[in-house]
């Protein structure tokens, strides 16, 4: 059973300049536990695909199921709920709240999930521990390095136990050494069973993924498995 199922996914923008087909007839399945890199030049539709997969946008036509939920039928509140529970976002620019310490940033998704303060604190600390930043819980973003900030962002993405981690150029703002550390962290998380979809135009980053999907002009031009789906993750899925 695939975590992500898209069927004839199509997204058309009505701009002043005319209609732009950003995504055309994309039908893909992504399994639980997989680590997928989505690549392509700008304007290829990869960002549009990511917005749709991330439930930030709805397809013009076509179907999208995420964790057995028909996304195209949801209203704004339903999408918010789905994002909150099933998706963790990691952005190129980290997007941490500057006035709030690392712990507070990690707590944010749980605020909207309605957890009480104590539970939030506990889980946020645990998530920070998972990315190796338990000691920096009370540092503000300004007091952290770029790599540390991205780790905080990853902890935030993980904290609600989502079924999908969606990363958009997560290493784009980092130097190559830090970028490697972050990629190592993604691989580690994937080994622990987290499904990851990573959008990048960096071939080096793409190499780390188990499956590579290439977009061009709104269509999938290449879908290539680099590493078989982790056997343990499959076993865990079977056990569930």
């Amino acid at each position: 059973m695939a975590l992500i199922e898209t069927r004839d996914l199509r997204r058309v923008y009505d701009l002043d300049a005319g209609r732009v087909v950003a995504l055309d007839s994309v039908s893909l399945d992504i399994d639980k536990g997989d680590f997928v890199a989505v690549m392509g030049p700008s304007g290829s539709g990869k960002s549009t695909f990511m917005n749709l997969v991330g439930c930030l946008d709805k397809p013009t036509t076509g179907h999208y199921r995420l964790a057995d939920t028909a996304v195209e039928r949801l209203d704004a509140d339903g999408l918010a709920r789905l994002r909150n529970r099933e998706i963790g976002f990691v952005f190129q620019q980290f997007n941490l709240l500057p006035r709030v310490d690392a712990l507070g940033n990690v707590e944010l998704p749980m605020v909207y999930a309605g957890f009480d303060r104590r539970t939030r604190r506990e889980r946020a600390l645990h998530a920070l521990g998972r990315v190796g930043l338990a000691e920096r819980a009370h540092h503000r973003p300004m007091q952290l390095s770029g790599g540390q900030q991205q780790r905080v962002a990853i902890a935030r993405a993980l904290v609600n136990g989502p079924s999908l981690l969606l990363a958009d150029e997560p290493t784009g703002a980092l130097d190559s050494r830090t970028a490697n550390e972050i990629m190592a962290l993604f691989q580690e998380l994937n080994r622990e069973g987290v499904t990851i979809v990573l959008v990048t135009h960096d071939a080096e980053v793409g190499r780390h993924a188990h499956r590579l999907i290439r977009f061009r002009d709104g269509r999938v031009t290449e879908d290539h498995r680099q590493v078989p789906v982790d056997a343990r993750a499959l076993a865990r899925e079977a056990a569930e």
Partner: peptide, 16 residues
């Protein structure tokens, strides 16, 4: 605006 975008992404509803 970015903060709002982020809050929406992590699950804030428009009414939040």
């Amino acid at each position: 605006t970015r903060e709002i975008g982020l809050r929406l992404a992590v699950g804030a509803r428009p009414r939040d």
